[in-house]
């Protein structure tokens, strides 16, 4: 029983070990390789940030649907799992400043009529002009009555709930949604671009194409940041500083180029 007990924080607010919760099923952000190791852009970034903070990092795997409750519960101290900073989530936890930003987009099979859907290049939800509502209603009309997949408790689920009248299918993981898109069980899926592009490069995702605009802003949040318990302001300050440094010296861009093939630095 004793071995199951461990004390994490020192009283003076210095964090010598930081436990980081991640999902491990969200390529290329964080996933599991065939050697059973957690790898991905966020793992590399976390190691870099921890070195900057002079802290020991330990990674904990946690299914996405319980990732916020388990942080609040104290199973780990930080979430780095491709999680967007949103007003909704800020009611429960706090966030570091964003370390990467990536828009969302829709994906379908190339045999689907949706693959020829054309629209404006960008859909910025912070912009409440006519073109925004026009693009949304065009998307909604194109997918009316179709099966549209999202992963549970994501900004994409929030978007679909708010703007789409489609038949929503909510998946526990991105990997499983990928399988169902390839199998034709869903007509379209909404997720962030990077993770879908990683899938499209594999044999299973070779028939997948993207359609519609880059979606960002509004309820899709302010980019991906590290989730931290509201009481741990000291830890948030440490992460903010380390992230600012890593952005300034080009580390984030380098990691991003390596895993995404493009620069997602904020």
């Amino acid at each position: 029983m004793i071995s199951a007990l461990s004390t994490v924080a020192f009283a003076d607010g210095h964090w010598s070990t930081i436990k980081i919760g991640t999902e491990g099923a969200y390529e290329p952000w964080n996933f599991t390789d065939s050697d059973g190791n957690l790898v991905g852009a966020e793992l590399d970034l976390a190691r870099d940030l921890c070195a900057r903070m002079n802290a020991e990092c330990e990674f904990v795997q946690q299914d996405w649907d319980g990732i916020i409750p388990a942080l609040v519960n104290g199973k780990y101290d930080v979430i780095m799992a491709g999680m967007s900073v949103t007003e909704e989530r800020k009611k429960t936890i706090s966030f570091s400043k964003a370390y990467m930003t990536e828009p969302a987009r829709f994906f379908a099979l190339n045999s689907s009529p949706l693959s020829t859907f054309s629209s404006a290049k960008n859909l910025n939800l912070d912009d409440d002009g006519d073109s925004t509502s026009g693009t949304i209603s065009a998307l909604n009309n194109a997918m009316k009555g179709m099966n549209v997949g999202v992963t549970v408790a994501t900004i994409h689920e929030d978007f679909a709930n708010k703007y789409l009248d489609s038949n929503l299918k909510v998946y526990p993981t991105q990997d499983e949604m990928n399988l169902d898109l390839a199998a034709g069980r869903i007509d379209a899926m909404l997720c962030d671009v990077g993770t879908a592009e990683a899938f499209m490069e594999t044999a299973g995702g070779s028939d997948v194409v993207t359609f519609g605009p880059n979606v960002f802003g509004g309820l899709l949040g302010e980019g991906v940041g590290a989730g931290i318990r509201q009481g741990d302001a000291d830890l948030k300050a440490m992460f903010d500083k380390a992230i600012a440094d890593a952005a300034a010296d080009g580390t984030i861009s380098k990691i991003s180029m390596q895993w995404f093939g493009k620069d997602l630095a904020p």
């Binding site: 319980g66 409750p69 429960t92 549970v152 689920e157 909510v170 998946y171 526990p172």
Partner: peptide, 22 residues
């Protein structure tokens, strides 16, 4: 509920994902 069906457990999980009160 794991294969996207919204029966008792499925609905419960959806509520948890919004309220974080498992």
């Amino acid at each position: 509920s794991i294969v996207t069906l919204m029966e008792i457990t499925g609905i419960a999980r959806t509520i948890i994902s919004k309220t974080y009160a498992p």
